[in-house]
Amino acid sequence: MDFGEIFNEAIGEMVSPTTAAYALAALGLAVHFGYSGLLNFGQAGFMAVGSYAFAMSTILLGAPWWIGLLIAIVAASAFALLLGIPTLRLRADYLAIVTIAAAEIIRYVVTTNSLTKVTGSANGLAGFRQDFLRLNPFPPGNYLGYSSPDFFYRFFGWGLVIIFGLGVWLLMRSPWGRVLKGIREDELAVRSLGKNVYAYKMQSLVIGGGFGALAGLVFTLPRDVVQPANYGTELTFFLWTCLLLGGMSTVLGPVIGAMLFWVVLSLTQNILFGLIGVGALPWLNPSQAGQLRYILVGVALMLLMIFRPQGVFGNKKELAFS
């Protein structure tokens, strides 16, 4: 077992585009849940809407990357409106059930064989990043050990995380953010003070959903393929784990949470594989080692929620609920 390599891989995982995508999507969840108290259990659906909208507009319409991006954001906003209209006036758990159902509807629809021509069915769509890669300002070469496109994906992903992280931070210290936090604490009281709670919740839902769509792009562009299997409910729950890991009503929380999530996954996987490799775990096969990690995620989610709901680094006072 080479601990140096295991460690290096974990560090690499920490800054990978996938981690950036998780961070961005979890930031969206922070806007939803951490700041507004909205239970969005369909963030994977927002990511799917974003990635599919981009891929489909690029492949089927031959749209340039920026049109694709625009369509992705418009589609995610429309999706948020569609979910918000029936549920935002109802109790919180209705939104939870509707968002998780809507995310599954998206996944079923892009998987169905009757739409294979449009969505590529279970195989998904591939080959939509060429135009986007033309943006790459880095000439071929080695950047911190990454090739030019690889470095560009990281630059793009983390650039978005930084810009939107800053945006959320600014928003949440504005009077607008104050109303959101008020809604999180007590919706009725905010209404009694003359604020249109419904509109605020809708704005929050659209913004966080937009982050999800962008996260979908950050997630799929480096792969150049979008497949329905990647957007199951488990993705949403991993994002929630990231959010709770870092602390939910802070800007840095979801970002750090996503990094931590992937570092721990990478470390456990590689250490388990290493141990299996040297024959230390005869009762475990490699695929079971992979499953063991997910058991860990589930248990971590429970323990976090029970013992440290403010997140590993969070401050108890920032806790959104008790």
């Binding site: 997910y294 589930g298 989610l301």
Partner: peptide
């Protein structure tokens, strides 16, 4: 414990239980 945290705990339990069964 509030109901929302409990709901999230149940999600964690679902994930853990599902993968234990898979295991």
């Amino acid at each position: 414990t509030g109901l929302v945290p409990m709901m999230i705990v149940s999600i964690g339990l679902a994930l853990a239980a599902r993968y234990v069964i898979l295991f």
